[in-house]
Amino acid sequence: MAKKPEYGLLIDYEYCTGCFACQVACCQENGWPAGMGGIQVLEIVQNLPNDKAYLTFMPFPTELCILCRPRTKKGLEPACVKHCMANTMKYGRLEDLAKEMGKKPKMVLWSPR
């Protein structure tokens, strides 16, 4: 049976600006070549009524995300969390992050593989 996930990433996507710092920080930290990496930023453009639209960016942890175990073991934040230009990401225990998630809208909680 798969081990139950304990840690995750809480992301406040209201403020993700699509700067891609997380994506490159992951490549640098873990030595991934271009085209691979533990997190990818997605752009979502949603049409709204009255000819309006809304632009959202969403960092998505991929199959390669290991939540920067070598860093977190040393008490450091994952590389993506540390460098996020908009301070939108938080690393922690899923149950703590779930509580935090209730504090404001437009949050997503990821539990990578």
Binding site: C19, F20, C27, Q28, K82, H83, M85, N87
Partner: peptide
């Protein structure tokens, strides 16, 4: 490796994609 300096008042530890690609 290049990292943002957490004690710097300007970026407060953050860093952009271009600086993070310095290697």
């Amino acid at each position: 490796k290049l990292e943002g300096d957490p004690d710097h008042p300007w970026n407060q530890g953050r860093l952009c994609a271009r600086a993070l690609a310095m290697t």
